[in-house]
């Protein structure tokens, strides 16, 4: 067994430097690597390119990094819910590449599967297709989109073991497994870290080969973006 355990977020991100390209898992605020984001804010690295479906909110998630002007470019599918983001975008401080959500996920997948590119119909005939190669298969047009090339992928899992195997919980899985596969170096923070052998191999979502560093995170806030409930039945 190869031991992947590091002491915490600070050690896990120790070699992330200015100008790095990072993938960050999560959908909205669900399943985001809270500990590593906080450590990146403390470390103060700058000029980052962040590949993440969303950009957090003003005072949580990637929003915290935006506030410190640490992000040079966001590659995302949807970036609402963040006033500081909007301000930086309109003032030209921040570069944004908006891409379809399925394209984003599949470009991660391609990287993790060792495939240089994918063909997707998403965006054909729209501005997303500008300057991209189009191929016709069986009478339908597809865009060629390249696999992502990220220096680090930072993901959050529910459980992990010392060998780096990961299990995700509910819809906090989202982009985390595909990003975990796609980083040159993948960092996983988990709610519960156990010894190798304690997780059933049949139930592993991400095999440890994709994970380089793992640690048990702490103080998860798990903020809810849209709290929607129904009245209890009396």
């Amino acid at each position: 067994m190869i031991n992947k355990v590091v002491s915490g977020a600070e050690e896990a991100i120790r070699d992330i430097s200015d100008g790095a390209t990072l993938m960050l898992g999560g959908f909205g605020l669900c399943g985001i690597p809270e500990n590593c984001i906080n450590a990146l804010v403390t470390k103060g690295v700058k000029s980052l390119t962040c590949i993440s479906n969303n950009a957090g909110v003003d005072d949580f998630g990637i929003g915290l990094m935006l506030k410190q002007r640490q992000v040079k470019k966001m590659i995302s599918s949807y970036v609402g819910e963040n006033a500081e983001f909007e301000r930086q975008l309109l003032s030209g401080e921040l570069e944004v590449d908006l891409i379809p959500q399925g394209t984003l996920a599949t470009r991660c997948l391609a990287a993790g599967y060792g495939m240089p590119a994918i063909f997707t119909p998403a965006g054909v005939g729209t501005e997303v297709a500008e300057g991209k190669e189009i191929r016709n298969f069986n009478g339908k047009d597809y865009l060629m989109e390249y696999a992502f090339d990220a220096d680090f992928a930072i993901v959050k899992a529910w459980k992990g073991d010392t060998a780096g195997n990961l299990i995700f919980r509910s819809t906090s899985r989202n982009f985390n497994p595909v990003m975990a596969m796609a980083g040159k170096i993948t960092i996983a923070e988990v709610e519960e870290l156990v010894e190798a052998g304690e997780l059933d191999p049949d139930y592993i979502h991400t095999p440890g080969i994709y994970v380089h560093r793992i640690f048990q995170g702490k103080d998860y806030k798990k903020r809810i973006e849209q709290r929607t409930v129904r009245k209890s039945e009396v």
Binding site: F27, G28, L29, C30, G31, W158, R169, S170, T171, S172, K222, R223, I224, E225, Q226, R227, T228, V229, R230, K231, S232, E233
Partner: peptide, 18 residues
């Protein structure tokens, strides 16, 4: 939607609703 008090931050839809 969940009943009040049963919201799970890990379980949302694409609109980010619990």
């Amino acid at each position: 939607f969940p009943f009040e008090g049963e919201e799970d931050a890990d379980l949302i839809n694409a609109g980010k609703q619990t």
